[in-house]
């Protein structure tokens, strides 16, 4: 678990360093995530993909992701300092939140659906993943 944590922290540190040095607009942890994802994706096919570090990394990552909600609580409580904004701008906040979420759901779903159906002629029945069969 410590070695896994070390891998995660080193990636975050590298991400932050790149963010600072190159003046990238992308946040450091996101750069760190991309570095680790690329490293893992290139290693996946290799013989070392089942190394002890990968196993411990997977368990640590799973734990962190499962309890990610807890990690937002300190920042989320900061909302008490923003009560004024919530009260004065509740309408644009509600409209923007609900509207953009629904639009994004529909556009993502429709474009993906369209691209799957476009390849439908090359499809054999066992690769159908319709809801009724799921």
């Amino acid at each position: 678990m410590i070695s896994a944590l070390l891998v995660l922290l080193v990636c975050e540190l590298a991400g932050n360093a790149l963010h600072q040095m190159l003046g990238l607009p992308v946040p450091g942890p996101v750069i760190g995530m991309s570095i680790l994802a690329a490293a893992l994706a290139f290693r996946k096919g290799g013989a070392s993909s089942r190394s002890p570090i990968t196993g411990s990394l997977e368990r640590t990552a799973e734990t962190l992701i499962r309890h990610m909600g807890l990690l937002f609580v300190p920042a989320g409580v900061g909302l008490i300092a923003e009560v004024g904004v919530l009260r004065s701008e509740w309408l644009p906040i509600a409209a923007g939140l609900i509207g953009s979420t629904l639009l994004s759901l529909a556009v993502t779903g429709l474009v993906m659906h369209w691209s799957i159906r476009r390849r439908a002629s090359r499809r054999s029945p066992d690769t159908v993943h319709d809801l009724e069969r799921g």
């Binding site: 944590l5 995660l8 922290l9 990636c11 975050e12 991400g15 450091g28 942890p29 996101v30 760190g32 995530m33 991309s34 570095i35 680790l36 994802a37 893992l40 994706a41 996946k44 990394l57 997977e58 640590t60 990552a61 799973e62 962190l64 992701i65 990610m68 990690l71 937002f72 920042a75």
Partner: peptide, 13 residues
């Protein structure tokens, strides 16, 4: 939150 964000790389990969 920082290391947890980096950890998202595992399901992504």
């Amino acid at each position: 939150l920082g290391p947890a964000t980096v950890a998202l790389a595992i399901p992504l990969a």
